[in-house]
Design a protein around this nucleic acid. Structure first.
Lengths: 103, 103
DNA sequence: TAAGTAAAGTTACTTTTCGTAACTAGATGT
DNA sequence: ACATCTAGTTACGAAAAGTAACTTTACTTA
């Protein structure tokens, strides 16, 4: 894929946030740390994609993964500072959606 | 696809804005009215997808299409009020990208 | 002791969406 | 007659997403 000449950083941001489910996953995590299954239940996303997205977000330093070696295993995902820094953007989209979308 | 129980309006918003190129197209249009070819040149998006995205955005009332029957034909796209209302959200993402992404 | 349950994924397979490039239409210029 | 311009559309292979079944490890229940 070619690069956006226009604003490479925004383009990069949108390549992340623009992927299906990513922003909704982050919106979930704004509530606080959550387990894999909690996120999976809260959103209509499948395990396959949730796993993929969380790995991408972890790699970008937006989400942190903590394993608790209990039985059964517990894994918690939470936002890093970089992740929390997205709250403003997400809230703006939320506001827009409430003002301009119906139902 | 199942529905998000969580926040249907945000989910709807992200289904629109989360599509590849959509937000960058809107970012372009924040600069003002633009022709099809101008947008196509500014972004690494192909005519096929640009056409598809503009139609979706027009259908949602976010973008307006005006045809000037000159020769050759001129078509200009611009944001509606609903589209301009997204400026805050887009600027927040832009800010985040400048603060947290490198290069 | 065998079977069932639970969490956090992974695998295999099908369907959608995307990317690339070639093509179209109408009017004009050479 | 042929090339040029804009704003698209079409065809097709490649990549991403949706769905559902399966895996692993360690209990717990029958």
């Amino acid at each position: 894929m070619k690069e956006s000449s226009l604003c490479p950083r925004l383009a990069k941001a949108m390549e992340l946030l623009g992927k299906r489910w990513t922003t909704l996953i982050l919106y979930q995590l704004l509530e606080g740390s959550q387990r894999f299954n909690e996120i999976e239940s809260a959103l209509p996303v499948s395990g396959r994609l949730l796993s993929e997205r969380l790995k991408e977000l972890e790699k970008e330093g937006i989400v942190e993964r903590k394993v608790f070696p209990e039985v059964p295993i517990r894994v918690e995902y939470s936002l890093t500072d970089k992740g929390f820094a997205l709250e403003g953007a997400i809230r703006e989209v939320e506001k827009w959606s409430q003002n301009w979308l119906e139902s």
